[in-house]
């Protein structure tokens, strides 16, 4: 009988977690790492006011969806760049960036400061709206 309760409890918890993940998915969140490490700064194009740095892994289910959206967004927006970093073999960098899941996208200013981050596939309009103040320069 205990087992059945454990099963029901597990399904309940998973359902709640699933809803929370879905709510947070693709939402803009506060920056976690203020000044980013050299490994990230290196991929920034100084010509761009803001670079969207997508953090991916080989076992990521939705990374190519995120990539398609972000490359398209960057191509159509002046001053917005795109770069991809594969964290598959770089757990230290994942730790340093406090990244728990892929895809996670960091919006990084030209000076290497993180502006915001998005877990999951970003929402195009929300992201653009949040970045607009930083793109005017």
């Amino acid at each position: 009988m205990t087992g059945l309760y454990v099963a029901l409890g597990t399904l309940l918890v998973a359902a709640v977690v699933g809803r929370l993940v879905r709510l947070r998915d693709g939402r803009n969140r506060r920056a976690r790492a203020a000044a980013l490490p050299e490994d990230v700064r290196r991929v920034l194009d100084p010509a761009d006011g803001v670079t969207l740095v997508q953090l991916s892994s080989q076992f990521c289910g939705t990374c190519h969806q995120a990539k398609a959206l972000l490359t398209d967004l960057a191509a159509g927006t002046a001053g917005l760049g795109y770069a991809d970093i594969d964290l598959t073999d770089r757990p230290e960098l994942a730790k340093e960036l406090a990244v728990l899941r892929t895809p996670t996208t960091l919006a990084v200013a030209a000076d290497g400061m993180e502006l915001l981050r998005v877990g999951g596939v970003p929402k195009r309009e929300d992201l653009l709206t949040a970045l607009r103040p930083h793109l005017s320069a």
Binding site: L11, V17, S57, F59, V99
Partner: peptide, 30 residues
Amino acid sequence: TAFALAAAFLNAAFGFCLGCETYVLLNRLS
């Protein structure tokens, strides 16, 4: 078994692949 069920159910009901998305975390903790 409960952990496996939670992951399977997240995938089934929400299309969320726990193991895949948290690969970098698993890798960090490994």
